[in-house]
Design a protein around this nucleic acid. Structure first.
Lengths: 208, 208
DNA sequence: GATAACTTGTGAATGATTTCACAAGCCGCC
DNA sequence: GGCGGCTTGTGAAATCATTCACAAGTTATC
């Protein structure tokens, strides 16, 4: 398979979301054009995105909502659950740990870590904050699939190095810093400062 | 000015971050190559990005750290403060309202809104949760620049329509839904489900 | 002030992504 | 079973973004 662009994968997520909505509304088929309208793209883009993975529609009719839903779940690797750990029990880590949307989509938060003794041992719901010192041991025992990083920026790289050498292969980073990881580790960044600066840029340069 | 790509603006934010670090470490000049290494890009990319806005370096020497810092602040519109409101006082809204990084970068959270009577009137730090019902009136009086959306997905579009017609021109959306806005409104999305699904895709299709 | 060692700024080339445009296939109806 | 109205799948074209490659400018050294 040809390398798939990040932008394509993002759109597949969007399409899946619309398909789920469409199921709730009882739709049985959907056209690339409808799918496109909801995602702010074009029907050609939708068809091209899907064409990388196969041929899912019926000419003249469109796509079967349940079939395409299932195909996208398969493509995105969502037919199984994923074990997620959260590293950093600050404001954002805490909020994420309690966010229901993750679990609903098959991302199960199984542990939260911090190194602050005041936080270690505190509980939310079924989760107890664990000691960062134990993280290598836990990873080797429990094999989490994905680590979400919500530590302060100046600790993030050290933490990532530990996670990676303990075997974590996918990271979602919220710390406002560019992390270095080996090529077999997948890293995504969520950088709110960067997003706000993008808005600032747009507001400032609006009419140029 | 030619339209600037989103990817370019994101990288400018990154460069600014490294420049701030470099200032702290007492560096006076920096080359495009150093800037590139930290951002996981190439020196040609750095120079091309900057070239859209002018000529900031000295051949043979590199860039003056304080001068380039100042130029990037200017370009990104960061020489002023921006007034930010947060709409939705759930887990994520609350975490963002208390996040210090925003204020540090000149984004001042001036109000938080919710429609839940149990939340309205509660305080964190200097902020009191206000009634969503008053938001149009407040916007017209206080002219916030940016609204951060952390409502549930099924309320987000209605809320956005209200914000936009009250005069908000920049939005940062955390609700996992694709919002429709008029062309003169800038919208950025932070969609954690989408990021996790991107990781799921990468883990699933790793070796293809 | 000539030379060597660097580094920028930028057209041109390459590569990636999106859009176009249309043949081919499907459905419903007469 | 043929026709009209739709919609997909996909090469080709167009657009957009990144990388290359090098002339031109700067500093340091002798």
């Amino acid at each position: 398979m040809r390398r798939i662009a990040d932008s394509t994968v993002r759109r597949l997520s969007l399409y899946l979301r619309f398909l789920e909505e469409s199921t709730n509304r009882g739709l049985v088929t959907i056209s690339s054009d409808e799918l496109a309208r909801r995602g702010g793209t074009t029907s050609a883009q939708v068809r091209k995105d899907l064409s990388f993975f196969g041929s899912f529609g019926k000419r003249g009719l469109g796509y079967s909502v349940p079939e395409l839903t299932e195909s996208l779940r398969e493509i995105l690797g969502l037919r199984r659950d994923w074990q997620v750990i959260i590293v950093g029990a600050g404001k954002i880590g805490t909020a994420l740990a309690q966010y229901r949307g993750f679990r609903q989509r098959g991302f199960r938060v199984t542990a939260v870590y911090d190194r602050d003794p005041k936080k270690i041992g505190t509980r939310w719901d079924a989760l107890t904050v664990r000691d960062m010192a134990d993280i290598e041991r836990d990873i080797q025992k429990e094999h989490p699939d994905i680590a979400v990083l919500t530590t302060p920026a100046d600790e993030a790289q050290v933490v990532v190095d530990r996670l990676v050498s303990a075997g974590v292969r996918a990271l979602l980073n919220f710390a406002p810093i560019q992390l270095q990881v080996p090529p077999d580790v997948t890293l995504r960044n969520v950088n709110m400062a960067m997003e706000l600066e993008g808005l600032s840029f747009a507001l400032t340069n609006r009419d140029r």
